[in-house]
Design a protein around this nucleic acid. Structure first.
Lengths: 241, 241
DNA sequence: GTATCACGTCTCATTATTTGAGATTCAAGT
DNA sequence: ACTTGAATCTCAAATAATGAGACGTGATAC
């Protein structure tokens, strides 16, 4: 199994939080999912409840807690989602294509904001949709700047290669053709947090017929510009606090 | 000092995460803020980095990490912010007043979504604004359903009383006059997560001249209806995953 | 160029905490 | 009323975590 971090209790706590990522979970299920003994899971989960990082639902099952969301809010997540709305709408109106923001979530990427092209043939991805990290231009962006271990792990069974990801880092954007779904093309660029780390991918997607076989050529400037604008917006807001 | 949860390492880890809520922090600052010895803070912080709950910025300072935000996203936070936009706009258009969503963050409440009345005299609260938990109808909502210990602690120096909070729980909404700012009135209602817990407060605010000295009488139905609609939206989306 | 200082990282003897088998309690099902 | 399964609790034993002090590094002062 995975190597520890040097603090066993935190390894176990992290395993419990990871298990809770999939929704409310009973004690027995946590024991099965984490392979930790029952009293130990119980004690650590109760401690996490005490600190608000975990809660209990109406059936007594454990779930991710409010304090965790508070900390994420402090890390800027709410501002990202809130600010993204207007920027996605602007990019949609400029390009005439649907636009989205994706964030990594475990082994998937999840859509956390979107602006849909209102009429005609379009790629619809509702907020909350979970897509694979193995295909698509957003997956390339979310993986390209990861540390080596996580990148190698992510490339396992992926439809792109280390060479493609090196190109993504060089150009600052990624494109894909029919990777996630036949007939769909997409372009993505990185959204960076205050520390420069990639925290999300800003994407534009639509039919290959309109975007051609080189969607990046047509749209990379608009997409990278919107992603940069969003990154700057987040940086400015942080400085005001 | 605060009593422990029964797992000392998690108490220390929680203290470190709480300290990071205020932004990037050096090791020395963490040692000062948490009163934990230097090698211990270093070891626990490194372990949290390993699990992604904490990151390092370009100056080597510790900060809240991406994995924490991923977990918050899984807990529904992004969907809340995304879904809130359209509901706040609708409530604004129906009532003609500015509307907001607040979430608790440490000893404050923070605005995570807002829709501003476009013209004339209006109460403007930009996203990211931190307001006091000691005054205002949103603070009453965020406190009314807390467990007893947290409620008693929150009422210390507050401009409302346990009796007022009991009325809030009975009616399902709160109102305030000039508590946060002279001349401003507001009405708020609870937004509940899947487990029924209060996760945010949905508010409407404006000048007392328009909202009168009983803003709840005029607007409580529209506000509670919007808050309920948002709660239902979150519940439905969770069931689809 | 050298010395000093402050911060971050690492080591390991010592100390304290965590662990988990088994007991107890409780609620649901028959 | 009895059985079953899950959650919670206890405490002797085992293991991990602790923190004083050493080391490494970079910045600053002289």
């Amino acid at each position: 199994m995975t190597i520890g971090s040097g603090v066993g209790v935190l390894d176990k706590a992290a395993a419990i939080l990871n298990a809770l990522e999939n929704g409310p979970t009973s004690l027995s299920q946590l024991v099965d999912l984490t392979d930790i003994s029952r009293p130990t899971v119980h004690r650590i989960a109760q401690s996490l409840v005490h600190h608000g990082l975990v809660g209990r639902d109406m059936h007594g099952r454990f779930e991710l807690g409010n304090r965790l969301v508070e900390l994420a809010s402090a890390a800027g997540e709410d501002r990202l989602v809130s600010a993204a709305g207007s920027i996605l709408i602007k990019l949609r109106d400029i390009t005439g294509e649907s636009t989205q923001i994706f964030r990594k979530q475990g082994d998937f990427r999840v859509c956390i904001a979107s602006a849909e092209r209102p009429i005609g043939l379009r790629d619809t991805i509702p907020v909350g949709t979970q897509l694979s990290m193995k295909a698509g231009s957003a997956a390339q962006i979310l993986l390209a700047w990861e540390d080596n271990e996580r990148m190698v792990d992510g490339l396992h069974h992926a439809r792109f290669t280390p060479t493609i990801l090196a190109g993504v880092r060089r150009r600052g954007w990624a494109q894909s053709l029919g990777e996630r779904e036949p007939g769909v093309a997409s372009v993505s660029a990185p959204v960076r947090g205050q520390s420069g780390r990639v925290i999300a991918a800003l994407s534009l997607s639509g039919p290959i017929e309109r975007l051609t076989r080189q969607p990046g050529k047509i749209h990379h400037e608009a997409v990278t510009s919107a992603a940069h604008e969003l990154s700057e917006l987040l940086r400015v807001q942080n400085d005001h606090i």
